[in-house]
Every structure is written in C-alpha cells, then in structure tokens.
C-alpha cells in the first residue's frame, strides 16, 4: 500500500469509525441510529434552505481550519484560534457599526479590522515563542480566556452597559439578497467566497512564495532552516500572525454575515476548537481544509434537525466529531493496521 493511499485512508477510516461508534452510542441509549442519521442527512441536504444554511456554517469552519493548518505547517500548534476568532468578531462588529462609509471601503475595512485583531492575538504567542521559547499551546489557551473576558467587557462599554453591540450598517454587511433568495431565504452570505479566497491565499503563500517555503522549512526542521540562513524567529512570528488573521476573518463571518452584531458570551463558540479537527482531517493542506470544513460544518448544522426529526439530543454529533478527532490523532495505530493488511495481501 502506498503512503499516499494510506494518508487518504486514515481520515476516511476515522470518519467511518466515528459514525459507527456514534451509531452504537445511539443504539445503546435507546435511540434509532437509522432515524438519527436520516434526520442528520435531511438536516444537511433536505431542501435548498438547509443547503444554504449548511454552506453558511461551513465558511467560518474553513477559516478556523486554515488558521490551525497554517500554524501546523510551521510546526506550531495554535489552540488560540477560538480567541483570535472572538476578537476578530468583535473588531468586525465594531467597525461595522461605528463608521459610516461607502460599501466599497466599509466592508473591506471591517474585514481588515477582523484580520488585524486576530493577527494581533496571534502575534503575542508568536513573539513569546520566538524570543523567549515559551510554548505556544499554553499561551494560546490563556489568550482564549483573556479574549473572552476582554471582549465581553468591551461589548458592555460599546453598548453602554448592554449585552450586545448595535447592528452593523448595511455597508459593512456580507448579506446577499441573491444568495438568500436562491436558497429559500436562508442566511447564506458572501462569506463563503471570502473563505474560499483565503484558501487560495494560503495555497499561494505556501506553494508560490518564498515566505511559504521558509515557513514550511522551519516546520520540517528548525535547525536546518536556521543553518540555511533563514530567520527562524521571524518565520515563527509570521506564521502565528497569518494564522491569527485567518481566524479573525472567521469571526468576521459571524459579525458581518450571520449575526450582524456580537453578544456577550458565557463560553466559547467552539468553532476554533473544531478548527483543530478540520485541519487534522484535511492533513493541513488548503484543499483538505475545505473538505474537512465541509464535513464538520455539515455535521454541526445538520445536527440541529436531529432533536425534532428523530428526538435525539443534538450532542450526538459533537460526540461523533470528538471521536473522529480521536481516531485521526491515533492515526499511528490505523497505519500499523493498514500496513499489516497490505503485507498479508502481498504475501499471497
């Protein structure tokens, strides 16, 4: 069995295993797995409205996945996507409501603000990693909580003691009457094009730019990159900044497209953590992230149909997603199994 085939098979097997274990969980807890997965399917593809909402859900997942994947390629684990997304959400919502500008300036400005806020939130762990060798995992986790509490406080300030920001002006909105109408008035917005454009940007940086070459070199072997004359510190900081910018744009999807404002939050959105799953499943490649995001975005949105249609708690899908992460992470054992099967066949 070739390595390339195994690399594709590991995520596929993980998805199948995840869905199977999910079915067993449903069966054991007295629910009908067939009815459950039928409801899930209909929740994703049932009608044009569902499809529109599913695609809308996929957009932030793509960006969160890109953020995690981009950092991974430089050998960094950015668990802080959640926090970067939250600050990006707030920045976009604030710029969207506080300024009055023509659309051609306002919308790009709001997107830029979100990217800049996310980038700033990535810069701090990047700087600490590059200059003081502080492990980015812990710093980004802490930055998540700082983002959550800080943004909650800022929302209070901006709304003069309220719990949500004012709605953004239409000039900053990603909403699209056209997309909404062809999907039976879903909340589908132009964000998906922003997300797909960023997929292209990530591919372009990694495959067509000197910067991307250096970033990947640092990811493969820091010492070799250093020896070859690359500035490892600069590359680590750049990787975290770009990763944070992707995550911040993920927040802009929510601010400028789906919600049009931001409310104070008791907890995280979960999109950032699911982004880890997306990147992992997509093997940290731009195209892989699109597939991973499509799968998890669909599962997350489709799950909303499960309580009504099959009377199964929505959390079953979170269980399945967690299991898929678990199996992909344990890819080593799947590889060992696959190699063994391959060897047996060769022996015959």
């Amino acid at each position: 069995m070739s390595n390339r085939l195994i690399n594709v098979l590991v995520p596929v097997i993980s998805i199948i295993l995840g869905l199977l274990v999910g079915a067993v969980v449903m069966l054991v807890s007295g629910y009908d797995p067939v009815a459950g997965y039928t409801a899930l399917w209909n929740g994703i593809f049932g009608d044009s409205y569902a499809i529109g909402e599913t695609i809308r859900q996929i957009s932030p997942y793509i960006l969160a996945g890109l953020a995690v994947a981009f950092a991974f390629r430089t050998g960094l684990f950015n668990i802080g996507v959640e926090g970067q997304l939250i600050v990006g959400w707030f920045a976009a919502a604030y710029v969207g409501m506080a300024f009055e500008l023509p659309k051609i300036i306002h919308l790009p400005l709001a997107l830029l603000a979100a990217a800049a806020a996310g980038a700033l939130w990535g810069l701090i762990p990047g700087l600490l990693k590059a200059t003081l060798k502080v492990h980015e995992v812990i710093v980004t986790i802490m930055m998540n909580y700082i983002a959550l509490h800080l943004v909650n406080a800022l929302i209070k300030v901006v709304s003069k003691g309220g719990f949500k920001t004012d709605k953004i002006h239409d000039t900053a909105s990603l909403r699209s009457d056209f997309l909404s109408e062809i999907t039976d008035f879903s909340t589908l917005h132009y964000g998906i094009f922003v997300a797909l454009f960023m997929v292209f940007i990530m591919w372009f940086i990694l495959e067509r730019m000197k910067l991307g070459y250096e970033l990947k070199s640092v990811g493969f072997n820091e010492n070799a990159a250093q020896y070859a004359g690359m500035n490892v510190k600069k590359n680590i900081i750049m990787a975290m900044v770009i990763s944070g910018a992707f995550a911040g744009l993920g927040g802009a999807m929510e601010a400028l497209g789906t919600f049009g404002n931001m409310s104070t939050r008791a907890g995280f959105t979960g999109i950032g953590f699911d982004g880890i799953a997306v990147a992992l499943l997509g093997a940290n490649t731009p195209l892989g992230v699109v597939f991973g995001a499509s799968l998890f975005g669909s599962l997350k949105y489709g799950a909303n149909n499960m309580p009504n249609a099959a009377n199964i708690p929505i959390e079953i899908v979170s269980i399945v997603i967690a299991l898929i992460i678990f199996f992909v992470a344990s890819g080593y054992i799947i590889r060992v199994g696959l190699k063994r099967i391959g060897k047996k066949k060769e022996a015959k």
Partner: peptide, 24 residues
C-alpha cells in the same frame, strides 16, 4: 500506546466530555 499527539487527544477529551455529559 497509540502515540497520538497528546494535545490533540486532550482536545478530543474536552469535546467528548461535554458532549457525552450533555447528551446524557
């Protein structure tokens, strides 16, 4: 045993813990 990335496995535990608890 499976030599998984320990951080990823931990993230899975976090997602799984809250999902199972709320499901039940």
């Amino acid at each position: 045993t499976f030599r998984a990335d320990q951080v990823v496995s931990g993230v899975a535990i976090n997602l799984l813990g809250i999902a199972i608890a709320l499901f039940l």
